[in-house]
């Protein structure tokens, strides 16, 4: 098993800031790790904790949630609401053993292409170090086998 582990990471981002920041990383031709898949939403306010669970169910080894910095939300307050939910949901995941290293949160503005690229690299590296999310994968595997009753 010398092959390096390529983690699968799903990012949920708002279209006005982080998605635009990712576009800027592209137009600036910054290079970063290809492990992240982006799901675009209008606002961080739209990012439901259920999405995180579904990404994990789909085999994601890591999840990133990102949007506009406080005060910059296109919808004025969506990210303030989101921040509260994240705070609570993060504690819940942590307590149930879904490590906070695997579910990360960030603010990336439309001007922060560099921050986006750097984060893609660091998050990929961090999760590569953690390795596959074996414990969750075992649960997923179980669902693939026929039910016992």
């Amino acid at each position: 098993m010398n092959e390096i582990f390529e983690p699968k990471i799903v990012a949920f981002v708002c279209t006005y800031c982080t998605y635009a920041g990712a576009d800027l990383a592209g137009t600036s031709r910054l290079k970063y790790a290809p492990n992240v898949r982006i799901v675009r939403l209008p606002c961080t306010g739209r990012i439901s904790p259920m999405f995180i669970l579904k990404a994990l169910q789909k085999g994601a080894d890591g999840v990133l949630i990102s949007g506009c910095h406080p005060g910059d939300c296109h919808f004025t307050h969506g990210n303030y609401h989101a921040r509260r939910r994240w705070m609570v949901f993060r504690a819940l995941l942590e307590f149930t053993g879904i490590p906070s290293e695997r579910v990360k949160y960030s603010w990336i503005s439309a001007a922060e292409g560099g921050k986006f690229a750097d984060l893609m690299n660091s998050i990929t590296e961090d999760i590569r170090k953690l390795g596959p999310f074996d414990q969750y994968n075992a649960l997923i595997k179980e669902t693939e086998a026929p039910a016992t009753f």
């Binding site: 939403l41 209008p42 606002c43 306010g45 739209r46 990012i47 439901s48 904790p49 296109h74 919808f75 307050h77 969506g78 609401h81 989101a82 939910r85």
Partner: peptide
């Protein structure tokens, strides 16, 4: 169309067109 309400709704009654 921000969808903040959709995420709040515990009974999953709200939804956002396009997303």
């Amino acid at each position: 169309g921000c969808g903040t309400c959709v995420t709040f709704c515990r009974s999953n009654s709200l939804d956002l067109a396009g997303f």
